[in-house]
Design a binder for these strands. Structure first.
Lengths: 265, 265
DNA sequence: GTCCACTGTCCCGCTCAGTGGGACACATGC
DNA sequence: GCATGTGTCCCACTGAGCGGGACAGTGGAC
């Protein structure tokens, strides 16, 4: 919640906690899977037992069953997430379809601007990055495919929210507006005003709201029903990117993807 | 198994059947997840009940629990795989790390050759495609990120197998050498001879062995321990690609990725 | 209109899959 | 030596998961 988090900045944000229920086998399994992250790609049985809060013998049994199913892989120094998960994840339609449709236009945008191009979808109150084309030069941005950030704190998130139904926006506000930097729109008033301006302009800007030194311009992609399903953004680092100049390009690309999505059958 | 399969060709291959055991809750859940594929991105409770062979009431309960956990999403016309899976899948280290390391070199290769570039890892007896940069022009190849094909029938698969331990190769042979086209190396003798030649040349070729009209050259990427962990390939369609000319480029790129992997910490 | 076949949802009593405390062997480090 | 960490396995208990079956709603055929 605090802008000055301990280590590497908001590369990824924890998913919303699961609604409280007496945990089922399935839930325990998901808890085990969720225990892994970028910083902890390999965990031992004891690690998992500690992180998840389940008895070691239970984790042991669970983990071996999951390995049998391909959800986990056992290595000499612990468990890691398995290829089966990658395979299943790639089939998730919300990310797959929009990525498929957007890829060519992302490449054009990438080539035309030389900047890093992002594609993200909304999942609950967060955005999840679905595809990234990185700038050849310049520092590596902290974003990651599969990474999750609170929607209100990102360009892509604001672009989607601005054109979503009011209940979606309300959901985000109700879940809180955590500040990732001191520029994050953490006040509902400012946040709503920003969305209104985005609706007017058709573009959302992010001036160091998600991460220090990171600037971006984002535009929404609309699906079949006319509702926003994703957003494209062009991102760069401080003063090395001319957002007003790039905004029309992002909008145009996003509109092209929209057209493509609505054309397909 | 038959080369002239019914519809769209070998875009994806079914994963190996799970070892037979009395099915656990977890296994049933995975069976439900695996019921989804490219042609069936949305399934209803009844669909799932039929496809998986579980009672409808059981599927109903299971599916709603999985939706609560984010593994599935409920839409007006059925269930689909959820974003949670995509998120978890992107964390699977085997695909993530190698893709991260390979991306820049894939882009170079893509730019230098103009052809489609593939990155795949070995999973059991199959290869799973981890990243694809598609040629701007020309027909769309049937490959798909997250797609699975029997290793012996692909360039990338043969490139990996040729430099893997004998037990890995034996595993593939023991699992059978199904023919995807009439050019697939379906005989152990021919297969072993091909691997030997690949070891000598450092490049694996695929002349319509995985799909008609598809030609490719592939080279292995080695991990920390000196064992192959992935393979890069350059792919094109009949006669529109000059493999001997591209082979050195693929090898060079693969070696660069190897270097990068072994350098990182 | 009346079928019929199909959905998704929910109930509820039975039972066996899942549980987890605890014991054990082994590897480190002091 | 002892202490503290691993991973693995056993086994008696019990409630989570099971699934047959009932039900309401939908929609096409006739």
């Amino acid at each position: 919640m605090c802008p000055t988090e301990r280590d590497s900045g908001p590369e990824s944000w924890p998913a919303a906690p699961l609604p409280p229920t007496r945990e089922s086998v399935l839930e325990r399994a998901v808890m085990v899977l969720r225990a892994f992250d970028v910083k902890h790609p390999v965990l031992t049985v004891s690690d998992l037992s500690r992180r998840v809060g389940l008895p070691k013998s239970t984790v042991h049994r669970l983990v071996h069953e999951m390995a049998r199913l391909g959800l986990l892989e056992i290595t000499p120094d612990g468990m890691r997430l398995g290829m089966q998960l990658f395979e299943l994840g790639e089939l998730a339609p919300r990310s797959r379809d929009v990525r498929e449709a957007a890829r060519p236009y992302m490449e054009d945008l990438h080539e035309a601007t030389g900047a890093t191009v992002h594609l993200a979808v909304l999942d609950g109150v967060d955005v999840v990055y679905v595809d990234i084309l990185r700038a050849k030069h310049g520092p590596r941005l902290p974003s990651r495919v599969g990474g999750r950030l609170p929607a209100h704190a990102t360009g892509v998130g604001k672009a989607i929210l601005a054109f979503s139904g009011p209940e979606v926006v309300t959901g985000r506000v109700a879940a809180g507006l955590p500040a990732l930097t001191r520029h994050t729109l953490a006040m509902p008033g400012a946040f709503h005003r920003a969305l209104q301006s985005i609706r007017r302009e058709g573009v959302a800007y992010d001036h160091e709201e998600s991460s220090y030194g990171v600037y971006c311009a984002a535009a929404p992609v609309f699906g079949r029903g006319g509702m926003p399903v994703a957003a494209l953004s062009v991102t760069g680092t401080t003063h090395r990117i001319d957002l007003p100049r790039l905004a029309p390009a992002v909008r145009t690309a996003a509109m092209a993807v929209t057209r493509r999505l609505q054309a397909s059958v």
